[in-house]
Design a protein around this nucleic acid. Structure first.
Length: 534
RNA sequence: GGCCGAUUCGUCUAGCGGUUAGGACAUCGCCCUUUCACGGCGGUAACACGGGUUCGAUUCCCGUAUCGGUCACCA
């Protein structure tokens, strides 16, 4: 008795403090299930929660919803934490950060849910059910054959099933004492209109007859999502539940639960976010789309601990966190202005739940690439340099920090991904091993040969700083003296130096490879290339 | 199928009774340039359909269609 009283005191106390804080402080939570890598849609949900929390000066919580022991995947929780950290979502309270409502892992809060479920049973708002999986199947089959509107365990069918509403009290006690497995089901009212005012969607009405007698507590003693999320949101003082649209159909059930648990006056407000859809075709975005389209739908790379299969991640694919966030933020929300590029602080400043779009958004990786392009070109050269340097070293070249920085400056505006800078820069490390045949045929003629020869000679006697400006002057003067129109021979010059017909600024290219290498490449070209037959 | 939700250029979206229906991505063209890009400028391109309400509907209401979600001892 005293133990029981003691147990119920804590939640009551929390409930009281909760209502005190309610009016002054927004508290939101991101509550993923550690069943694998966090989907990019989950990251967006977390982001919207975070933006809202920061905007309102509130708190962002992280709760791990691991009430399904069968679906537990090792490493998934760490993956979630690391993903949020990578995109820059800071957790104020919760798993990994601690806080006054610990533990934040639902599997460690078992007793709390059991007590609340028991309370509902005691108050006649829920009941024990002993039906086996086979009996449930049989019931559904029977109802389907009878063309019942809905094959569900509800106010009508519950009286034909094996539960504490149909069985004798002694029998019930005996079965429980004997350890027979049972679940606790919500006694959903037969006729009742359940209303809910969604921040994004407005009023949503559902008749209770459409809600079945949901299982609240499973036979393994753990709660289902429905019970756990209500109990925790209440105890943790959550003021706004911002989650995916897939929860909208069960939201009325949640309202009912708040009511039955006696917490309706402090019930959080709901906001159901639109879903992320496949780039083309029907349905929601899935891993299959990622494999097919060759793009990531997970924030970080993930290796399945069982199959060893690797799923690509935004981070490993070269997306910058700020680009990922910017892209995600605008997938379903927009401030109504024409601004496209936002820092996290700017997102926070302009974010508004009421402006979240209602319809699902197709996932368009091209837009993500464009955002990445914007952020790559904005990045200081010094920050891009180490990436270039590392790739160069992996490829077997030596590359000074200075050179890497120059390369970054030369190429960052041309690429979508930082790693493509090096891919476009190979001619800056290596003399051409071959020459583009089409360009040779079109541009390598007597004038070109003479131009390259004259320029080489000019460089041999060149003194001073070998930089773009002086190189340009040297080339210009040499061509003028030789009576050659510069425009006519530039592609041949590029061909001689890089073997290619296209590329970044040639003067800067020469500056980066240096005078000696420039002369050497020109000589090699003169020795190797023959003019076409005419 | 029942229930819930949604529906503006190919895509992301602005619009909240009267607009030449705006922006961005993509696409096309032009300019810039030694080239390819980048960048700049410009073009093509949308209110799902049918009824109402209204002097007037992209906007409000009702149907239809289509799409999405959901109907587990998963979240």
């Amino acid at each position: 008795m005293s133990e029981r009283a003691n147990m119920s005191r804590q939640p009551l106390f929390r409930s009281f403090t909760h209502s005190l804080f309610m009016s002054t402080s927004v508290r939101v939570r991101f509550a993923p299930s550690p069943t694998g890598p966090l989907h990019i849609g989950g990251v967006r949900t977390a982001l919207y929660n975070y933006l809202f929390a920061r905007k309102m000066g509130g708190k962002m919580l992280l709760r791990i919803e691991d009430t399904d022991q069968n679906r537990f995947v090792p490493g998934a929780e760490d993956y979630i934490l690391e993903s949020l950290r990578w995109v820059g979502i800071e957790i104020d309270e919760g798993q990994g950060s601690g806080g006054p409502h610990a533990p934040y892992r639902q599997s460690e809060r078992k007793d709390i849910y059991q007590k609340e479920a028991q309370r509902l049973v005691d108050e006649g708002k829920a009941y024990y059910a002993f039906d086996t999986a086979e009996e449930l199947d049989a019931m559904r089959k029977r109802l389907e054959e009878a063309n019942a509107p809905a094959a569900q365990y509800n106010a009508i069918t519950r009286m034909q099933m094996r539960n504490s509403l149909t069985m004798k009290p002694d029998d019930i006690r005996a079965r429980i004492d004997a350890g027979e497995p049972y679940v606790i089901r919500l006694k959903t009212p037969r006729k009742e209109e359940v209303r809910l005012n969604d921040i994004i969607r407005g009023w949503v009405n559902v008749h209770s007859s459409a809600i079945d007698d949901k299982i609240l507590l499973k036979s393994d003693g753990l709660p289902t999502y429905h019970l756990a999320n209500i109990v925790d949101d209440h105890l943790m003082g959550i003021t706004h539940v911002i989650r995916g649209e897939e929860w909208l159909p069960s939201a009325p059930l949640h309202v009912l639960l708040y009511r039955y648990l006696g917490w309706e006056d402090t019930m959080p407000q709901f906001a159901h976010l639109p879903l992320l859809l496949k780039p083309e075709g029907n349905g929601k975005l899935s891993k299959r789309d990622a494999d097919l389209g060759g793009f990531p739908i997970f924030p970080l790379q993930w290796t399945d601990p069982v199959t060893g299969q690797v799923a690509r991640g935004f981070r490993e694919d070269g997306y910058l966190p700020e680009a990922t966030v910017n892209f995600l933020a605008l997938l379903g929300w927009n401030p109504g202005t024409e601004q496209e590029l936002f820092t996290m602080d700017e997102l926070i400043a302009s974010f508004d739940l009421a402006q979240v779009h209602k319809a699902g958004a197709r996932f368009d990786i091209q837009k993500a690439q464009w955002f990445n392009h914007q952020y790559v070109r904005q990045r200081p050269d010094a920050e891009l340099a180490p990436i270039v340097q590392q790739q160069a070293e992996v490829a077997g070249f030596t590359c000074s920090a200075e050179k890497a920085e120059k390369i970054a400056a030369l190429l960052k505006g041309r690429v979508n991904f930082a790693r493509d800078i090096f891919n476009e820069a190979t001619t800056l490390f290596q003399a051409p091993a071959s020459y583009d045949d089409a360009i040779v045929a079109a541009k390598w003629n007597e004038d070109a040969k003479r131009a390259v020869t004259v320029f080489r000679d000019a460089l041999r006697s060149f003194e001073g700083d070998f930089v773009a400006d002086t190189i340009k002057n040297t080339l210009g003067d040499a061509m003028q003296q030789a009576g050659i129109k510069q425009g006519k021979i530039m592609q041949a010059m590029r061909l001689a130096l890089t073997g290619l017909g296209a590329g970044p600024d040639l003067m800067l290219t020469m500056e980066i490879i240096g005078k000696g290498e420039t002369i050497s490449r020109l000589e090699t070209a003169l020795a190797t290339l023959v003019a076409p037959a005419n």
